[in-house]
């Protein structure tokens, strides 16, 4: 088994390549993904390798991109459309929630939508408006959609493959802050990482910290900083819908304390969902309120204030301490 040392975005590309090879029904399209290879190089070289029947550019029209994908998917293809930045998904929102999410129900299972909608998401890259959103909660709220957020190169390729092979629509949000932050060994051949399964990144007994995407890195850093003082368990949820509740409650029952870290704003964020469910499932084990370390309830700030908005290790450490000392 040979492997390559890839960054996260290279793993996206590799995953797409393997799936394009693995299944002729897979097509990749979006703005600048074809000849240009994608603004983040996520589709670099795929156009040359697979031709414009499999990998092609679209007009600047998100609604059309997603609508076309839904149509293709309903007729048996496996489209993997890209929305260039998750902040541009809104023009396609109606297509996503009214049709992609509903078609299976509406047709009583005759038609499904095996579409994987890829979009880079999240802040920290000094970009202008609309380029830093983290709105996964909107999509988890829509039954009929799956929402997946990888955090390491190995998982990215595997989760992407699993998403593409999944018979239902998957919103695949790629944490672009860490697109090139580090490399990892990624096998060359195709493989999948199961959707709906969280991953315990770090075991501990004092407190459970639930997080995903770009926030896994500062969370692990915070946990390392607290080594010797507090024994922190870090769980990377990976799939936000369906959420791996078993993993969450298993961890919580072990520690009795939880912190949720997400860069999305606090109100209505998934931290609330996790806190409520923990209360339902494991109230008796609870020693402290579930702490949410999140972005603030403001529009995502520009450049100069970005670093204050996003949770970083120090803020996460404070949240953990608060929870443990309650």
């Amino acid at each position: 088994m040979s492997s390559q040392n890839l960054t996260l975005v290279q793993a996206v590309r590799d995953g797409l390549k393997c799936e394009l090879e693995h299944d002729d029904d897979v097509v990749v399209f979006g703005e600048d993904v074809g000849k240009n290879g994608g603004v983040f190089r996520a589709t670099q070289g795929l156009y040359d390798e697979f031709g414009e029947d499999r990998v092609f550019d679209t007009p600047l029209a998100e609604s059309g991109i997603v609508g076309t994908a839904i149509g293709m998917a309903a007729y048996g293809m496996k489209p993997v459309p890209e929305i260039q930045f998750s902040g541009f998904m809104y023009p396609a929102f109606d297509q996503i929630v009214s049709h992609a999410a509903r078609l299976r129900t509406r047709s009583r299972g005759r038609f499904t939508v095996p579409m994987t909608l890829r979009a880079p998401y999240g802040g920290g890259i000094r970009a202008p408006e609309h380029h830093s959103e983290s709105k996964e909660a909107i999509y988890t709220h829509e039954a009929g959609l799956k929402v997946v957020v990888p955090s390491t190169p190995y998982e990215t390729k595997g989760l992407l493959a699993a998403a593409i092979r999944d018979p239902d629509p998957v919103v695949f949000l790629e944490p672009k802050l860490i697109y090139r932050a580090f490399r990892e060994d990624v096998p060359e051949e195709p493989y999948t990482v199961e959707l709906g399964e969280a991953n315990v990144r770090r075991e501990g007994t004092d407190v459970s910290v639930f997080t995903w995407g770009a926030m896994t890195r500062p969370t692990l850093e915070a946990a390392d900083n607290l080594e010797g003082e507090i024994d922190v368990e870090v769980v990377d949820l990976r799939t936000l819908s369906p959420m791996d509740w078993d993993a969450i409650t298993d961890s919580f029952k072990k520690t009795g304390r939880a912190v949720v870290v997400h860069e999305a704003p606090k109100t209505g964020g998934l931290g609330a969902e996790i806190a409520a469910t923990i209360g339902e499932e494991a109230l008796l084990y609870q020693e402290a309120p579930v702490k949410r370390v999140t972005g603030f309830d403001t529009p995502f700030p520009l450049y100069a204030l970005e670093d204050y908005y996003m949770p970083e290790a120090a803020r996460i450490e404070d949240g953990i301490r608060e929870t443990v000392e309650y």
Binding site: G228, E229, I230, D231, T255, G256, V324, E325, Y326
Partner: peptide, 15 residues
């Protein structure tokens, strides 16, 4: 050895 953890784990009163 790392200094003894000052904080005990879960179910005990930690303060």
């Amino acid at each position: 050895e790392d200094a003894e953890p000052a904080v005990k784990s879960a179910t005990r009163e930690v303060t």
